[in-house]
Every structure is written in structure tokens, then in C-alpha cells.
Amino acid sequence: MTTVLQVRKDALAATRLVRAEDRALRDGEVRVRIDSFALTANNITYAAFGDAMNYWQFFPTGEDGWGIVPVWGFVTVVQSLHPGVAVGERLWGYWPLGDGAILAPGRLSAEGFTDLAPHRKALHGVYNGYLRCNVDPYYSAGTEDVQALLRPLSATSWLIDDFLADNAFFGARTVLLSSASSKTAYGTAFVLKGREGIERIGLTSAANVAFCEGLGCYDRVLAYEQLDDVAADVPCVYLDFAGNADLRRRIHTRFADHLKYSCAIGGTHVQHLGGGGDLPGPRPTLFFAPAQIKKRQAEWGGEVLGQRLVEAWSRFRDEVSAPGSRWLAIEHHRGGEAVQAAYGRVHAGGGDPRTGHILTFAR
């Protein structure tokens, strides 16, 4: 039996646990047991943008109205009808929010393979790749939880910084980051800290100001109510991790033509999501990390890009994992009901920003 958590596409707080008999493998397929995975605001963003960005299509339910949220984590191969993938191998990658999955490996290498399941062929290759832990340069056995929580976000953060630098910050020297306590936002601020002359202003709820200040990656941290403390004539870029339509309008209205670029990244404020039409200043543009990966692969080659991403991850991992770190406190959740409850907490938001949720369906 395989268990998954399904989510109502039009009401993301509504979930159900669904158990189904395992089908027999076809030649060339492998079955994996999903050992552990992270659940963060990033996964809620996958759900919030599920239709627009095709996230629901990776693990279709076959039933209208219900979807499976993708997650990042570690698995073990428990059955294989593919000569290039052995039972017992551990893999890193993109999985359904459940306890198992079937893959159709292709394009094999020593490092990993691509899932060539027919329904995934039109989807972006970044999410279809699976890496073998025993040769993965990112992998460290003692930090699996930190990897699951922050590795995908670290890559996104680095790519946001690279995108902005690639465009000379659109002529701005100040970057506003909403949902500043979220992991992707503070990961981005951590990378931006290396850019000389770029001011990083974190915007967050009043309750999370002290946490964000304590991280040391923002030049200033302001509660959302303090937005007017930023001069209206400052040329700036807005990195929107919140997706809050009211906040977006306030920022566009205040800075207008001084807002040089408006970058929509996340949807942590899922109850306040909205479109970007009819706003002063630039039209909000959705950031799609795989597009920047594709550009850099063409310019630098995959090996150079991969090396830079690994180096960035290592710096961030070491900072977050240092003894006495203020960044992260990990909570483990075991069993289907606990997974369902943890999803509800993350979807609702407002929890301790230091908490990182690691989930498994096994008890």
C-alpha cells in the first residue's frame, strides 16, 4: 500500500490521506520508499502556483480537484526492474507528499538519472532529475535534515541573486524582501550580503522582527507597518516572497517609478494572494529558477554552474549548522496523521520562523 496526502486545489487548507494498492512494476521501472522530506513555505508556494507553473502535473492524482504537493527529500530503492538502478540505493530528489513512488529511469549516469515517465516529459528537467547520494557533492550523511529543508531553497536564493546581478540590479541599490523570516528570503539575503553596495531590507510581521535581526543577513528589518520608513524616492527592487496582494499594492504605490523591478517568487501569505495587474510601476514578473539555470548552463556549462551552486550551498549549510545557530530548530513528524497536521500548520503560517519540519510517513 502507498499513502499520499492530497490537497484540494481550490482550497489548499483541505487535505485527505489516501491509501492505494501498489501496482506491479513495468520493465525499466523502480519503486522507492520515501524516507524523509521537508515541508516549508516553499511547498505551499508549489500548491499556490500549481496550475500556473504545472506543479500539480508532476504527481497527478487522476481525480479532478485534488492534487499532490511536491516535496524534496531522500528515498531508498526497494524494488527495481532497471539494470542501472540497484535495490538499496539512496536518492535525493523531488517526490510526491507520500511514502512511496514509481520512477522510470533514463539518461543514466554515475551521478543519477532522469525520470522519463510519459506524463513528466513536458515538465522542466530540473525537477525530473534524481541524484545518487553516494556520489552527490551536496550530500553529507550527518546533515540530511538540513539538506532537505534548505538545499532547494539555497539554490533558488543563489539563482535570484545571480539573476539580479546579471541585470545590474535593474539600476537599484536597495532590495526589499517580504516574508523576511521565510527560509528562501533569508537565504537570498545571505547571498546578497556578498554584493558590495546593495542594501537589504527585510519586511516581516512585527512578531518576527527580532528573529530576522538576529540572523545578521539584513541591513534593516521593518515590520510591514513600517514600510513608510523607507524613503519613497529610493530606487529599489522588490522580491516578493509573500504573494500578499495588499502589500504588493502598497509597495508599488509608494515607490511607483522608483521601483525598478518587481519579482514574484513565493506565496507564503496564501490567504492574500492576488494578481499583479493595474499597479503603479513595473508589472510583477514571476521568477522561475529553472530559466536562470538554463541560461547559465548555456553560458558557463553545467559543470561550472554545478560547482558554484555547491560552493554556495556549502557556505550556507555551514552557517546554518554551526553550534548555537539562530537559524534553525528542526521538528520531526512521524505517521500520516502527523504529516497531515504538520501540513496544516505550515499552510496556516505564523509559527516560529526557526522551526524546520522534517516528515516521514513511517512510524
Rank of each mutant, 00 (worst) to 15 (best):
A110E: 13
H332A: 14
G301N: 14
E29N: 06
V270N: 05
V7K: 03
N244A: 13
E196W: 11
G93P: 03
Q79W: 04
N42M: 05
V32N: 01
G349F: 04
T204R: 10
L159H: 08
P282C: 07
V230P: 00
P137L: 14
V87Y: 10
A24L: 11
A172W: 09
A338I: 00
V270M: 03
G356F: 05
Y127F: 15
L227D: 01
R315K: 14
A110D: 12
Y238S: 01
R90N: 12
G67N: 05
V87N: 04
E199T: 15
A180C: 09
H272D: 09
V30F: 04
F190Q: 05
I160N: 03
N43P: 03
S181N: 13
V234Y: 03
V78D: 14
G275K: 05
G214L: 07
E225P: 01
W158H: 14
C133K: 02
R345V: 05
S140Y: 02
I198S: 09
H124Q: 06
S262K: 09
A231D: 03
E63Y: 07
L177W: 08
G197P: 10
L164P: 00
G112T: 01
S314M: 13
L123Y: 02
G84F: 13
D115W: 06
K295L: 14
T355P: 00
L123D: 00
R250A: 15
L305P: 09
F211H: 15
E213V: 11
S182A: 11
L153F: 13
P353M: 08
L153Y: 10
Q57P: 00
S140M: 05
D352I: 12
G266N: 06
G275E: 03
P152A: 14
S314Y: 08
F169S: 08
L328I: 14
G112V: 03
L192S: 05
A291R: 10
L215K: 00
G142H: 14
L159K: 04
V7Y: 05
R195K: 15
S140R: 12
Q297P: 02
W158Q: 09
V146E: 10
V191F: 13
Y130R: 01
V85P: 01
G351D: 07
Y218E: 02
A329V: 13
L239H: 01
F169N: 07
W95Q: 01
W56Y: 08
K295D: 11
V77C: 05
A185F: 09
E29H: 08
V191S: 11
L215G: 01
L131H: 04
A117D: 00
V126N: 10
R296T: 13
R90K: 15
A122D: 08
E319Y: 12
W56F: 10
G277S: 15
N167S: 14
L159G: 03
P96M: 12
I293W: 06
T45D: 03
G216V: 12
F255G: 07
T285Y: 03
G73C: 04
Q340W: 06
G202D: 04
Y130T: 01
A256H: 10
P282N: 07
T45V: 02
F287W: 04
N167Q: 15
G187A: 12
S178F: 12
D99T: 06
R120V: 10
A256G: 12
M1V: 07
L116P: 00
H119L: 12
V135C: 15
I251N: 01
A38D: 04
R283V: 15
L309H: 03
G351K: 02
W313L: 11
G50P: 00
E299S: 15
G301P: 14
S36A: 15
N244L: 06
L247G: 02
